[in-house]
């Protein structure tokens, strides 16, 4: 039996990789993948705790997160494609449309 703490450490490592990737990468696609990593890190945590506490709600929430992540990926990629068509780049430094 793998102890709970191992899962939680794994989850933290995956989440931290995601944060690091999101902050250090400049390519939009890679940033997206980092976000997915963060979400999955959270998911691992949710499922591990759900099993530990014998509470199914954690797993239900994990499904929600997966569904939201899928939707987010779909919309996000659509935005990336639209961006690429307009600016011919996937590099975030080239895009400052949101500057106030």
């Amino acid at each position: 039996m793998v102890p709970l703490s191992w899962y939680m450490v794994l989850s933290v490592i995956v989440f931290a990789i995601g944060v690091f990737g999101f902050l250090s990468r400049r390519n939009v696609i890679l940033m997206f993948m980092s976000i997915e990593l963060m979400l999955n890190g959270v998911n691992i945590n949710l499922i591990a705790l759900s099993h530990y506490l014998q509470d199914l709600r954690g797993q239900i929430l994990a499904f929600f997160v997966i569904a939201v992540a899928a939707a987010e990926a779909a919309i996000g990629l659509a935005i990336v494609i639209a961006l690429f068509r307009n600016k011919a780049t996937a590099h975030v430094d080239d895009v400052k449309e949101l500057r106030g």
């Binding site: 975030v92 400052k96 949101l98 500057r99 106030g100």
Partner: peptide, 18 residues
């Protein structure tokens, strides 16, 4: 003066969020 915070650079936003 407030709008200066909004740089438009995504990782700034990321750092702020983190």
């Amino acid at each position: 003066s407030l709008r200066k915070i909004q740089t438009g650079i995504v990782e700034h936003y990321g750092i702020f969020m983190a």
